[in-house]
Design a protein around this nucleic acid. Structure first.
Lengths: 329, 329
DNA sequence: ATTTTGTGTGTAATCGATTCCACAATTAAT
DNA sequence: ATTAATTGTGGAATCGATTACACACAAAAT
């Protein structure tokens, strides 16, 4: 691999001049420019991004921290981020925490060391240590999915989405509605979605039996088990179940199918996430599309805006959503 | 952010010595080491990976080129790659081609500019230009999913997987088996899987009507349409359909469901990929698990081996697979 | 006719590390 | 007692770019 020095020598000019035609900055005569371009062409020379970054302090790399890379949600998010970023000549440096909180913090450090121009974090649980770390990092930062004071956020409207879905159940005539959530330390998925559900129930003067409210984790099996517990422990069996993720919903459906409950007649069900799967289960699942890809777009735009314009006023974007009514409710 | 120079000054030693304790190389007295570590501790100094890479020519970054990041397959693959890589202190620089062949080549260039220590390519179609480019790149390289002569490969056993699946249909008593493939310019998914199917059919003296062989692209809708064409154009309606991906299969199932064919009685169906969805459609889809995650592991190990040991003898790993028999056949 | 402005090019410092080499000061070996 | 090896430290070159500054020359403005 040739260096700028060699190119300069071959074209009988100084490195400065070569650098000028590379970045077309400053004055270069047409003759010289041609001569240099010819040499560049012939040698297939490409300047080292490495050296350039060292000097300019810009890497054109954005770090993306994900709780997992295996899910569709993450995939769509990254695709969205990448679309905007690559358009602007940036690339993504991936950091997969596998839901390990300690790793989240380590990665923050690691990405800083690598001098990324910005960091996008798909957040799950936010703890003080993390927030503290983010703030002292002093790198353009965008958090997706969880609100963090004092930094840029792109949020899902978990509360209203949950209310809307609950409201749909109510409109369909359900009065005994059960709920499968996740731990409330996850403020967005755990706390806000549950609050949306409860508030809407309350709003309609509908009571919620304790046994109707169950908790799972982010996988299908967990939805299956939660549904089982609801059925087994309820004094009055509910007529509907609202699961806070599609996977939980699909697990629940599985339980219902295996135990011959007809959906939606004996038990209506809905999820959140608009996973591809949701469309092809039987019956097709009513769910909420969070437009992950466009959330990715927003996050990427935000971070670019922050890096290039040094925009400092913190911004919170709440993305919209769409309730997809299918046959499970 | 402090630099090594400042640390050196604060500890009243030379940069050389600081560098020594950083990389614990060479001789440093216990006294001095402690003094330097104290300063490092206090200032929270972290050496610039940037500057280090420039000097050492190692970035500890591996470029991963994907045809798409939205699918489960990609997600699992990346998760597998990341698992091994991050363990070894490497990170992933993502490049998403969105199935654009020209971009594939551009990214090769781009990753080289960024001086990645190696490149993993999840290949779809291989053309001469690409192969040529890869070879002149002179960077440790591993291709996943498509065999490329002269470079490292981690392959799926498409041919035998397809034969096995076909053989399953035959054992179940099917004689009129149809096939939904993809374009044969995709040697692995298009050509080899089809060849496996045809060879096994031939092996069992079963003929294949032209109308039974259809082609789609990598999405669900396309499977739906292909199934429609098969039903509409066949003189003798087949009793089974083998789709080369789960999505195609699920699209086909959808058509069959809508047109009231019972699965598997009137029409048996199978796919390849073991997507999460395949388990939850009705009936659960018989498919083949390619162990994407462990393929990711292998690819990562291979590239690390190649970068660190300068292992030069080309290696081809064919990963194994598992036929998952469910209720659709 | 002198000053200013616009063009074109090069010298050398700089970014923040690593590393070769030189040089002391000890300690061990002959 | 001399030589050799071990241990400890620093000076300065280096990686491959960018960029502030200086300088020369031509054209335009005064």
């Amino acid at each position: 691999m040739a260096t700028i020095k060699e190119i300069a020598a071959m074209a009988s000019v100084s490195r400065t001049t070569v650098s000028r035609v590379l970045n077309n900055s400053g004055y270069v005569s047409e003759d010289v420019r041609k001569r240099i371009n010819k040499v560049i062409e012939e040698t297939g020379y490409i300047p080292s991004q490495q050296a350039k970054s060292l000097r300019t302090k810009k890497t054109k790399v954005i770090g993306v921290i994900l709780p997992t890379i295996k899910t569709e949600t993450s995939g769509r998010l990254v695709a969205g981020i990448d679309e905007v970023l690559s358009e602007a000549g940036y690339q993504i440096l991936l950091a997969n925490t596998n839901l390990d909180r300690q790793k989240e913090i380590e990665f923050l450090q690691l990405l800083k060391v690598r001098q990324v121009d910005g960091i996008i974090l798909a957040a799950t649980n936010v703890n003080d240590e993390l927030v503290e770390k983010i703030k002292q990092l002093d790198i353009p930062f965008v958090a997706i999915g969880q609100e963090i004071q004092g930094i840029f956020n792109v949020l899902y409207d978990d509360y209203h989405a949950a209310r809307d879905m609950t409201s749909l159940f109510v409109r369909k005539g359900h009065k005994r509605i059960s709920f499968i959530g996740v731990d409330e330390s996850d403020r967005a998925v755990g706390f806000l979605r549950k609050k949306g559900f409860l508030d809407e129930m309350n709003n309609n003067n509908l009571s919620v039996e304790d046994a109707w409210v169950e908790k799972g984790v982010f996988n299908i099996q967990s939805g299956y088990e939660a549904m089982a517990r609801i059925i087994q422990n309820s004094t009055r069996i509910p007529t509907a179940v609202f699961a806070v993720t599609d996977r939980l919903a699909i697990g629940a459906m599985r339980y219902l199918n295996e135990h011959s409950y007809t959906i939606p007649d004996e038990m209506a069900i809905a999820g959140i996430g608009a996973s591809e799967m949701s469309k092809y289960v039987t019956p097709p699942l009513t769910t909420i599309d969070y437009f992950n890809e466009s959330v990715g777009h927003e996050a990427a735009k935000l971070i670019l805006n922050r890096t290039t314009n040094h925009n400092k006023e913190f911004k919170k974007i709440t993305s919209n959503y769409r309730l997809i009514e299918r046959d499970s409710v």
